[in-house]
């Protein structure tokens, strides 16, 4: 494990996002014990690991979200485009660094309509080009177009997930972190979602995805990291990780 960590740190010069020896926790309890990883421009990177491994904590720390929902960084470094994010407020991570998160559990604004959710997400943008983004999102998720005027808490779980992803796209970010985007989706919709993510990636979006269905995630991802109780225990390309029997056994259910 030590060698993989050192290997990574050599590549960090050019990485879009690089995390170095990050320690973070909730109050006195440390959840991330010095993790290091990097994400290159245009990649799909996946973080996998069992429940409580620290996947969501990692994404929330990247976004610089505030406690108590998110961990506080105690040491280490998070860089985006070479600049430290540690003292950046979360809305500025979106506004200046063009990175956003589709959080675990969707967190859509249920008291707003689908359209209002999408409009709100365009907060940092000029009015002119939101129309085009809307068409793009409705093209990806036609169901959202049908329900544009509906209060979003009346959507089905899957539709809410589409809205959560659509909303993230509406921010016009170039990096999107997704925390379990397939949660609650029927298998067909799950594959649809990943196909959509792949398409977005092909058009230039950088994606970091946390996924319970590790096999699916590794199939789509360029590279993956395996987390275990706050530490990175393995990394490699999707195929590599899937070929390693001990990983298959421990995290992918054989």
């Amino acid at each position: 494990m030590d060698t993989t960590v050192r290997d990574l740190s050599q590549k960090q010069g050019s990485a879009l996002i690089s995390v170095e020896n990050l320690h973070a926790g909730y109050g006195k309890i440390e959840a991330l014990h010095g993790i290091s990883f990097h994400v290159e421009q245009g990649e799909i990177v996946t973080l996998i690991g069992s429940n409580g491994a620290g996947k969501s904590s990692t994404l929330k720390a990247l976004m610089r979200l505030a406690p108590p929902e998110s961990p506080t960084v105690t040491s280490g470094e998070i860089r985006c485009k070479g600049q430290s994010l540690l003292n950046v407020e979360p809305h500025n991570v979106v506004d200046r660094f063009k990175m956003t998160l589709v959080p675990e559990g969707r967190h859509i604004f249920g008291n707003l309509t689908v359209m209002e959710n999408l409009h709100l997400a365009a907060w940092t943008r000029k009015n002119e080009d939101t129309r085009k983004s809307l068409d793009h999102i409705f093209g990806l998720f036609p169901r959202l177009a049908e329900r544009a005027r509906q209060r979003s808490d009346t959507l089905s779980g899957g539709e809410q997930q589409m809205l959560a992803v659509g909303r993230a796209l509406m921010t016009n970010c170039s990096v999107i972190l997704l925390d379990e985007p397939s949660m609650g989706l029927a298998p067909v919709l799950m594959y649809d979602m990943f196909r959509t993510l792949k398409r977005l990636n092909d058009s230039g979006l950088t994606i970091v995805v946390v996924e319970q269905n590790a096999r699916l995630a590794l199939e789509v991802a360029d590279r993956g990291y395996v987390l275990d109780t706050g530490e990175i225990v393995a990394e490699g390309s999707g195929e590599e990780l899937m070929r390693r029997p001990e990983i298959m056994e421990a995290y992918l259910g054989g």
Binding site: M63, L65, H91, G110, N111, L112, L120, R167
Partner: peptide
């Protein structure tokens, strides 16, 4: 208004607001 929309959004889910680039 958009700021009113943001107010309603905070009422529902304060956590997600900064993810839209909106200063809480």
């Amino acid at each position: 208004s958009r700021i009113g929309m943001a107010m309603r959004a905070v009422a529902w889910d304060e956590f997600a607001l900064p993810l839209m680039g909106i200063p809480l």
